[in-house]
Write a protein that binds this DNA or RNA. Structure first.
Length: 687
RNA sequence: GCGGGUGUAGCUCAGUGGUAGAGCAUCACGUUGCCAACGUGAUGGUCGUGGGUUCGAGUCCCAUCACCCGCUCCA
């Protein structure tokens, strides 16, 4: 069973030294995390695997490591200073600050299905939407007005039926209600209203930005704190962290301060663009070629969260791949769209390759592949620099769901043009750029094949190293049953469950009595009932459902039930004994490649031999020695952190020079001569 | 941002105003011949933080911080 929640993965990370909360001694700082001894190995291995694939395995790629801090002009001309931001508004009355799109989103969805049955709320809400549309620019204006008028008219036509529904509901006249539902006019009215609401939803989604702005100009949004409808203009809150170069004492906003201001890079890409000409000239590269870079990036996110998925400091693995502009592409050469597609495929394959352990069978591979997908971004999602972007997404456990782990963008010649002087007028117009009067350079390239000078286009595969760590951890996490419980043990759980049911049923009765008497009940009958149903279901499927028992006991309705509290600790212990947690990491990613144990730690010859084997391998890859527990526990410990191989030295080893090699996923053991260990392990570790 | 929840030993948690606890983990000694063994002993906590009520607060009240769940949103 793979991870069911991020919580499980988070626990393991903090317990075993992958990731710790940052500045914990001072209460922590939201969204900053430190990588522990195992985390740093995993992160390094991820980066190594990426570098291997992006740089070493290709003929057309080189590496780079640019400075984190760059001239402020870089960010002005890249467009980040102006547009890399979220719209914020302040309430003029109570001075609270909100995200503009949040406020409007809440207002738009404030009408619920049941409001259909109250004519006033419905028409008031959508008349307000119509006024917002009136404030929008054409052609959205007339389109929106039509959509809003239709939803009002459709409701007007439907409303007499709504009243009848209410009447039948009140009288309990089910047969009259059924008759009415089947009536063709009713069907038509229902369909019309459904179509109108769908059209409304579609319009709002497609015109989200314009609708948000218009909502404020039309004064239709109210402050959740004080109810006022007067807000400042929506303005952009910049996501870039600021600092200063050199000692600056001037106040924020002054010329002196602005002159010394720098930003912590929000993406590593601009460092590559700055070095396009350096790399091309120094290595005499010909287009198409690419530059890869791994490095930290910083974004002052408004809502970070979900463990290390969205943090304000994170690490990127980015490629800028420079290609011919479409007009110079010769017969038989790939154009920008084909290069884009090729990179999407290559990167997708990389994700699958490292998400799949060698032990995976066909079924496992299908399951893994189903958790990765490619998704083309819609036009209104695209960043300011992109012609098209395809995201690679992973289905994270629990509430997080599908999350972006990489974006492959077609950035055209936007960035290199933005940083170039003397860009022709028509190109500036096409790219919606101002002429760059600050730059000393033109990032163009003479193409000997095309016999032309041009500014190359760019395909950008940009992956999150931090998100990759989380992705591979989630995918690798498994809890599996390794010991079949006996019938007696199962019966024990069943009888415990029966006891819980008996007690809970009494509590339900008591609670119902309390409610009737108008008193505050100690338990919520519905929730306890739901808990019992879940418990029954799980218990009836034992022993296969053993791992679900604790989950059931965590149910909301199980809270404050005495027998549950009593039952939980022994059950937890028992279940832990029957299951093992194993990280089925690809061996190339595993933080520790090999663990060596003595079968008996009070036999010096065995200990010595084990330590010497550890010493032999630690030069080649991360190897540990451990003798602090029984052999079974030592195996489990290594399983939990994904160590692919364990070696056990025993008495036989002293005589014939062989050891037991135990593989993580299958738990299979094999006898291997110490002299042959190196040749045995190396191909299996896929280093 | 809104709503709900949690915060007590390294970890998982119990503790309904009166002497801070259990299991696991860790360390020591003994035992232990391959999948979470056992015995004995020891270490470890100003109960997230700051205020308040009280003779007395882990427990009640207020504030604050962090995290989790849901909604919203987002490379």
């Amino acid at each position: 069973m793979p991870a069911k929640s991020l919580e499980q993965v988070r626990n393991l990370c903090m317990r075993r030294g992958f990731v710790f909360p940052g500045s914990a001694a001072y209460g922590g700082v939201a969204s900053f995390w430190d990588y522990g001894p195992l985390g740093v190995e995993l992160l390094n291995n991820v980066k190594k695997a990426w570098w291997q694939d992006a740089v070493y395995a290709r003929d057309d790629m080189d590496g780079l490591d640019a400075a984190v801090l760059m001239s402020r002009k870089v960010w002005q001309h890249s467009g980040h200073e102006a547009t890399f931001s979220d719209p914020m508004v302040d309430c003029k009355k109570c001075r609270s600050r909100f995200r503009a799109d949040d406020l409007v989103g809440a207002w738009v969805s404030s009408v619920r299905d049941e409001d259909m049955l109250t004519s006033e709320t419905w028409s008031k809400h959508f008349k307000a939407h119509e006024r917002v549309c009136q404030a929008m620019p054409e052609p959205a204006r007339s389109q929106g007005v039509a959509v809003m008028r239709e939803i009002l008219a459709a409701h007007e036509a439907w409303w007499p039926l709504g009243k009848l529904f209410l009447k039948f509901d009140a009288s309990g006249d089910e047969s009259a209600k059924r008759e009415m539902v089947a009536d063709s006019d009713t069907v038509k009215a229902n369909q019309r209203l459904k179509a109108a609401t769908d059209a409304h939803h579609k319009f709002i989604t497609e015109n989200a930005v314009a609708f948000t702005a218009a909502s404020f100009t039309a004064c239709e949004v109210t402050c959740p704190k004080c109810g006022s409808n007067e807000f400042t203009e929506p303005r952009q809150f910049n996501l870039m962290f600021q600092s200063h170069v050199g000692p600056v004492s001037a106040a924020a906003g002054t010329d002196e301060e602005a002159a010394a201001r720098v930003y912590l890079r929000p993406e590593t890409a601009q460092g590559i663009f700055m070095n396009f000409a350096h790399v091309q000239r120094s290595l005499a590269r010909k287009v198409p070629f690419g530059i890869a870079q791994i490095g930290k990036a910083f974004r002052n996110e408004i809502t970070p969260g979900n463990f290390i998925f969205r943090t304000r400091e994170f690490e990127q693995m980015e490629i800028e791949f420079f290609i011919k502009p479409p007009q110079f592409v010769a017969e038989g050469e790939k154009n920008d769209e084909q290069w884009h597609e090729e990179w999407v495929q290559q990167r997708y394959r990389w994700w699958l390759r490292y998400a799949t352990p060698p032990s995976a069978g066909n079924e496992d591979m299908e399951r893994i592949a189903a958790r990765f997908r490619k998704r083309a971004q819609a036009a209104d999602e695209l960043a300011h620099y992109a012609k098209a972007t395809t995201d690679i997404e992973y289905l994270f456990p629990g509430a997080l769901g599908w999350g972006e782990i990489e974006g492959v963008a077609n950035r055209t010649d936007f960035d290199l043009s933005a940083h170039s002087k003397d860009v022709p007028e028509e190109d500036l117009k096409r790219l919606k750029l101002e002429a760059n009067k600050d730059s000393n350079e033109k990032f163009d390239y003479f193409d000997p094949d095309a016999k032309a000078r041009y500014i190359p286009w760019v395909i950008e595969p940009s992956a999150g190293a931090t998100r990759a760590v989380l992705t591979f951890l989630c995918e690798a996490y498994h809890e599996e049953l390794v010991k079949e419980p006996t019938k007696q043990e199962i019966d024990q759980i069943k009888s415990d469950a029966a006891m819980i049911r008996k007690n809970a049923e009494k509590k339900i009765k008591d609670a119902r009595k309390d409610i009737e008497a108008g008193k505050e009940p100690k338990h919520q009958p519905d929730k306890v009932e739901a808990f019992l149903n879940q418990l029954d279901d799980v218990v009836s499927r034992l022993p296969a459902s053993l791992d679900e028992v604790l989950l059931a006991l965590d149910h909301e309705g199980a809270q404050n039930l005495e027998p549950v509290k009593k039952f939980r600790p022994p059950t937890e212990k028992f279940i832990e004994e029957c299951t093992r947690t194993v990280l089925r990491l690809h061996p190339a990613l595993a933080p520790i490649k090999l663990a060596v144990f003595p079968l008996k730690k009070n036999k010096p010859e065995i200990v010595e031999l084990a330590k010497s084997i550890k010493q032999k391998f630690q030069k080649h890859f991360r190897t540990v020695y451990d003798d602090s527990a029984g052999i079974g526990r030592l195996y489990r410990r290594q399983d939990e952190i994904g160590t692919p191989f364990c070696i056990t030295v025993d008495f036989e080893s002293l005589e014939d020079g062989t050891v037991t090699v135990r593989e993580r996923d299958s738990m299979a053991q094999e006898r291997v001569a110490i002299d042959e260990l190196h040749d045995y392990l190396l191909p299996r570790l896929e280093l």
